[in-house]
Nucleic acid binder design. Structure first.
Lengths: 175, 175
DNA sequence: GCTAAATCTCTTAGTGGCTAAGATATATAT
DNA sequence: ATATATATCTTAGCCACTAAGAGATTTAGC
């Protein structure tokens, strides 16, 4: 197998491996929502709040891709469960900031412990330099996925016949 | 900062970075479903079919965590859209194998092109040896997440008062 | 300053995918 | 042969979602 061919095969394997693990990651999230007894979108919003801190209802809609109406429902449920609080912005009274209630949110956090433990075990097998490589990849990968999402969204606004011709890769033959 | 402290900080940063990119990955999937005009679960099943090939309806239920009733609906919709075919197992006529219709499924595949292009660009910045490291991590990570999912599911069957005490990490203070 | 347009969240009606329970058909065990 | 187990489908009812628009507040134009 030639040098470049080896790389191509490696890339293909990598893509499949990442797809698999990412699919399993989705399932983990669904399981957390199940165990925690909240809806999937509710958990997704908790996750965003964890990553971004105090954000407005509109921002949640923007990030999740849900309508503002749906977000109102999400916040209602989360607030009733005591996980978040609505906080009207005093500067712009149309806005509603959503803030997690840390003590209550920890009850959700516990369900990520199995995941954290599993990942710690995995990380233990890597040197600090290797971990830095993984970090670099995670950051670059994030930016890539973000850009891809935007590209795909913009496709939505383009009428099908005017879309740039996307060249398809062959579907992988079944194993 | 001490040697081990540096590693701890690195691990924390890594966790956040992976969480971010994985969340964005979920969003990408939702966007694909949107653009393709099919339900989220339908796309998830297409993905499983792509990864595992021809599988039974029951296996889809098992992997997705949906009830068999829900899967019937998924398959009905996918079949109506011409994306999959039901194939009764001749050996065991209770079973129904689901197989993708390759030509039609390619129409879905095209929506992954932006993602593939983005990832290709990212991968271009890595040597073959580094890619091998990423592959190793993706595989080990998959196993880790799989194990974590099982651990979490088993928690579901354990009554709350009998659950092993999960030690919580402090919630990250908001940025 | 006052009116019009824009922005942000919430409300309402209606839709669709989900669960739970059980029906149907086929296979396996006693 | 009968009973039990397995695999999928059916049905009723529920709940989160969308689309459309209302209400409240801010910003822009004159």
């Amino acid at each position: 197998m030639s040098r470049t061919k080896a790389r191509a095969a490696l890339l293909q394997e990598l893509e499949a491996a990442m797809r698999r693990s990412s699919a399993q990651g989705v399932l983990y999230g669904q399981t957390v929502a199940n165990v925690a007894g909240i809806a999937n979108s509710d958990l997704e919003c908790m996750d965003i709040l964890y990553l971004e801190g105090r954000v407005t209802a509109g921002r949640l809609a923007e990030v999740t891709g849900l309508t503002t109406g749906a977000i109102t429902g999400v916040i209602d449920r989360l607030e009733k469960a005591g996980l978040v609080r609505r906080e009207r912005d005093e500067a712009d009274r149309r806005k509603v900031f959503i803030a997690v209630v840390p003590e209550a949110a920890m009850k959700i956090g516990q369900f990520y412990v199995p995941m954290q433990q599993a990942m710690e075990k995995v990380f233990a097998g890597y040197s600090e330099e290797e971990l830095r490589l993984l970090l670099r990849f995670a950051n670059e990968g994030y930016k890539g996925v973000l850009a891809a999402t935007e590209a795909l969204k913009s496709l939505l606004d383009t009428p099908p016949e005017k879309r740039p011709d996307l060249k398809l890769k062959k579907l992988r033959p079944n194993p």
